[in-house]
Lab assay of single mutants.
Amino acid sequence: MSGNGNAAATAEENSPKMRVIRVGTRKSQLARIQTDSVVATLKASYPGLQFEIIAMSTTGDKILDTALSKIGEKSLFTKELEHALEKNEVDLVVHSLKDLPTVLPPGFTIGAICKRENPHDAVVFHPKFVGKTLETLPEKSVVGTSSLRRAAQLQRKFPHLEFRSIRGNLNTRLRKLDEQQEFSAIILATAGLQRMGWHNRVGQILHPEECMYAVGQGALGVEVRAKDQDILDLVGVLHDPETLLRCIAERAFLRHLEGGCSVPVAVHTAMKDGQLYLTGGVWSLDGSDSIQETMQATIHVPAQHEDGPEDDPQLVGITARNIPRGPQLAAQNLGISLANLLLSKGAKNILDVARQLNDAH
């Protein structure tokens, strides 16, 4: 009898209710805020589980004197976190989706994509230029951005401005803007500013005609071990179906173009009346040469937790077992079709030249 009692006690200790789920994140304040929001949602869904947040620095956090596009290494903000995932030191990792490459290392998958916040870019102005827009900034004003995508589009749109690289986390960039006289304004992701509670610093939100956004911008991705079915089931509740389908289309477009950090590629997606609209573009580094096109596809946005595919093969690095396969494939095909259209119009040449120029500098 006593033996059975011990077995029952052991089973209770090993039951999922007692389990601590370890969540990996970057150390920056924004990353911690984003991770806290994901953990809060998981806690609400699984009140019996405990969650421990483990923060670590990544290569991208450490190399702050070089433009991201020049470092010449993929997975700048993800490699150390993936290493911890691989060694079973954490069970899942919360990322900004735009930091996750469209091809993940073997053994990993994006197990959830959370509801997207505003994906557009924002302009934050130096205190002396508050009330201005990019259009009304004085001639030769210097605007800071760490992104080739932003610089290429904005140089084309605002030729009277000069664009220079600015690195560091959000706090560091804002301090550089406010305390030094080098920059009249800087460009940042609206979602990051909003998550930090800095709505009052948003001086201008850039519309798609001015600057399309990065693939996955404004959404959070939760990376897990691809074979860890328990954790895949656990994080599945975080999937937002519309965000998922938009981001599958965007990531398929980028992957098929073979774009990345070192080339200016941008997108804009919208879901309306059962249609998914995808606009994508590529630019030369100075913005003088560009190709942009829009395509659409009829896609039914499923309700969360309709029964999805059981075999769960990944699409552009994403596993969404609780979302039907048909809409996911339709979104992926839309991204591939748009990429093929741009490639047929000469996108590869623009991107190759951009890559060579970026590598040469």
Rank of each mutant, 00 (worst) to 15 (best):
Arg173Tyr: 01
Gly236Cys: 15
Arg164Trp: 11
Ile299Trp: 04
Leu161Gln: 12
Val202Met: 12
Ala339Met: 01
Ala31Tyr: 01
Met196Arg: 06
Val224Phe: 14
Val23Arg: 01
Gly197Phe: 07
Leu68Pro: 08
Ser147Ile: 08
His268Asp: 09
Pro138Gln: 14
Pro127Ser: 11
Leu206Tyr: 01
Thr66Val: 14
Gly131Cys: 07
Pro119Glu: 06
Pro101Tyr: 01
Thr58Asp: 04
Leu92Pro: 01
Phe125Thr: 04
Leu42Met: 08
Leu174His: 08
Pro159Gln: 10
Lys132Gln: 14
Phe129Tyr: 13
Ile299Tyr: 12
Ala320Lys: 05
Val301Tyr: 09
Pro313Ala: 14
Arg22Asn: 10
Ser141Asn: 14
Val316Gln: 01
Asp178Tyr: 13
Lys157Ala: 13
Gln34Thr: 05
Glu52Ala: 14
Ala40Asn: 07
Val316Glu: 05
Gly131His: 13
Lys348Arg: 15
Leu49Asp: 08
Gln153Arg: 03
Val39His: 06
Gly335Met: 04
Ile21Ala: 13
Glu162Tyr: 15
Arg149Phe: 07
His120Ile: 06
Glu73Leu: 06
His256Arg: 11
Met271His: 15
Lys79Tyr: 12
Lys74His: 10
His305Ala: 01
Ala226Leu: 08
Ser288Lys: 07
Asp230Gly: 07
Asn349Glu: 09
Val90Cys: 11
Ala191Leu: 01
Met271Tyr: 15
Asp230Val: 11
Ser337Asn: 15
Phe158Lys: 06
Asn349Asp: 12
Val93Arg: 11
Leu170Gly: 12
Leu76Phe: 07
Val282Arg: 01
Gln217Tyr: 06
Ser69Met: 14
Ile63Thr: 01
Ile318Gln: 01
Asp228Glu: 15
Arg164Cys: 10
Val23Leu: 10
Gly281Arg: 08
Lys348His: 15
Asn340Met: 15
Asp91Thr: 03
Gln153Gly: 08
Met56Pro: 05
Asn340Leu: 08
Thr145Tyr: 01
Glu242Met: 05
Ile63Cys: 11
Lys115Gly: 13
Ile54Phe: 12
Asn340Trp: 15
Val142Ala: 12
Gln275Asp: 03
Ser28Asn: 01
Ser75Thr: 15
Ala185Val: 09
Gly326Cys: 13
His268Ala: 14
Glu310Ala: 13
Ala84Asn: 07
Lys74Leu: 06
Thr109His: 09
Gln50Trp: 01
Leu161Thr: 08
Leu329Phe: 11
Glu52Phe: 11
Ser141Glu: 09
Leu188Arg: 01
Val38Tyr: 01
Glu209Thr: 03
Asp233Glu: 11
Lys98Asn: 06
Arg195Phe: 04
Lys62Pro: 01
Leu206Ser: 04
Met212Trp: 01
Pro106Gln: 11
Gly260Ser: 01
Tyr277Asp: 07
Gly203Trp: 14
Ala320Trp: 14
Glu210Gln: 05
Gly216Lys: 01
Ala270Phe: 14
Gly48Val: 11
Arg149Glu: 01
